[in-house]
Design a protein around this nucleic acid. Structure first.
Lengths: 123, 123
DNA sequence: GTTGAATATATCGGCGGACGATATATTCTG
DNA sequence: CAGAATATATCGTCCGCCGATATATTCAAC
């Protein structure tokens, strides 16, 4: 799942929203870091609809402007949940490894075999 | 940053590895879920090298087979750290919103205006 | 009263990145 | 001797993101 797709699903996770509302919501919940372009948005919306992860909830005409509201399906909610878990797992895996890498020169507790050959290196 | 790029950086976070080793390491640390194709790998490696997030650490000939080891640069470490933070933030934002959406019908503590219209629910 | 920003939709072409296929070479196992 | 595993590399295709562009309405400014 791409970043754009993930953020669109996230924006729809709590309530149905219309396209432009998703744009602002994504910008908001990412702390202003992620700004979806309209071209990206409607592509994502079409693909998610085709995959049945979202559906058209309703259409409203607010002050002469059409608002097309989309809503997560059960599949969409499941997909988002799974993706969030995968991301969390990936993030902590990375953070763990970063910590391990930094610790390397300390030679903590368990030497692999018995130290002597290591001097030669790549040999 | 793409998924493939993120996992390559993560695989290199604790120690230098060669291409094929990265392939197995990524599969390993993702619990078998992510399998990089060689076409993807070398593309990523070239791009990361061009961006100076990794460098060629050394070349070894092990049993007649060339091994080309790559290593994270300081920039690469910073980029990975930042990306991991962004992913963790994104994941918890999604999980928070999922919880909010699910909690909606419970009407917890603070009603927005005064509750009467809510009975309609999702209608 | 017209101009410009915000709101709201939609399409299209370019470009970059992931992937599948393919190729080469060595070592190990059967 | 054949096939799997190890290890490198390239190429074409397809898909997704982005920038540009278009249309239409409302509201604030001048």
């Amino acid at each position: 799942m791409t970043q754009a797709t993930f953020f669109v699903l996230t924006a729809l996770a709590d309530q149905p929203r219309h396209g432009y509302g998703i744009l602002r919501e994504v910008e908001d919940l990412s702390g202003g870091e992620v700004r979806l372009r309209v071209g990206t948005l409607y592509g994502v919306l079409d693909r998610l609809t085709a995959d049945a992860l979202i559906v058209l909830d309703r259409e409203e005409v607010q002050q002469g402007r059409l608002r097309r509201y989309y809503r997560l399906t059960d599949d969409g909610m499941r997909a988002l949940t799974a993706e969030a878990e995968r991301m969390a797992a990936g993030a902590s895996a990375a953070q763990r490894r970063i910590a391990e890498g930094r610790r390397a020169p300390e030679r903590p507790v368990t030497p692999p075999a018995t130290g002597p050959g290591l001097a030669g290196g790549l040999a």
